[in-house]
């Protein structure tokens, strides 16, 4: 009997077996898993160093069974730069939220990309500051109500959401920049492939690699997990279109998003 049992699904080795602190319906857990799967598939768990940021994902070391440095708010790409130059053969990634990466850490992300640092950046865009309680983020959509844009984000005074995947694609050092989502199984699988690709590019020294993941934050959006999941497609994708914005390894059209 037992010999006929085949393992078809299991916890990635790069993830620890611990209960999650993330809210129900939060997409961080899914993205953690996809990152861990990519590390496993590369066989890189023993060589990987993660850089945590400040935000809900600050406890990276509680979930990933790898070496981790905790960076000050927004500075993960600079910390990753330092780590990578000491251990050039290691696999270094940062995991950052939208406040961290697109507000306080704008300078660090742009210049790490522009220098072509051989790191992988996973960027979770959920249009809000999750950990501090749902304040307006640089990615908050026009009209979106948050605790610091109680009348809805007014782009004439509060600026426009920043499209990071497009912005970083413009820089010479960027080898790969894409935006994915994990709101459906199909998109989650595509997201996993994209994240793997972003790690492979690091191993092959093909430039700075960036993956923006659209994520749900039911708690701060004031929605049920199901409604929040639905908002990703209904509201976010219009403003933040999925796709590959740069891939220096592609000859012609990218095939990553055929199913999206």
């Amino acid at each position: 009997m037992a010999s006929n049992v085949q393992t078809v699904f299991q916890r990635p080795s790069a993830l620890k077996e611990v209960p999650t602190h993330y809210c129900a319906g939060c997409h961080h857990g899914t993205v953690h898993r996809l990152v861990a799967e990519a590390i496993d598939q590369l066989g890189a768990q023993q060589q990987t160093i993660g850089i945590g940021s400040v935000g809900c994902s600050v406890l990276l070391y509680d979930y990933f069974d790898i070496d981790v440095v905790e960076a000050p708010h927004g500075r993960a790409p600079a910390v990753a730069t330092g780590v990578k130059h000491v251990h050039p053969d290691s696999v270094v990634f940062t995991y950052q939220g939208d406040g961290d990466l697109a507000a306080i850490g704008t300078a660090e992300i742009i210049h790490a990309a522009n220098r072509g640092e051989l790191i992988t950046v996973i960027f979770l865009n959920n249009t809000t500051y999750g950990m501090t309680g749902g304040q307006m983020a640089p990615t908050t959509l026009p009209g979106q109500v948050t605790t610091t844009s109680p009348y809805g984000r007014d782009v004439t005074t509060e600026g426009h959401p920043i499209r990071m995947a497009e912005l970083l694609a413009m820089l010479g050092g960027t080898g790969f920049s894409a935006r994915v989502a994990v709101d459906t199984p199909k998109r989650a699988i595509e997201a996993g492939r994209t994240i793997l690709k972003a790690f492979e590019m690091q191993k092959k020294k093909q430039g700075f690699a960036f993956v923006e993941v659209l994520g749900a934050c039911p708690t701060n959006w004031g929605m049920s997990a199901i409604d929040a999941n639905a908002r990703v497609e209904k509201e976010m994708m219009d403003f933040f279109p999925l796709g590959v914005y740069k891939d220096v390894t592609a000859d012609g059209e990218s095939n990553v998003f055929k199913t999206v």
């Binding site: 440095v69 910390v79 730069t81 330092g82 300078a107 660090e108």
Partner: peptide, 26 residues
């Protein structure tokens, strides 16, 4: 060795943090 002119002092010290955390003399 490695020399990087960072985009700011903020970035520079965090590169130092990373390299120091990685065990380098920085």
């Amino acid at each position: 060795g490695c020399f990087i002119q960072a985009e700011s002092e903020v970035a520079a010290i965090n590169m130092v943090l990373g390299a120091g955390a990685a065990g380098g003399r920085v």
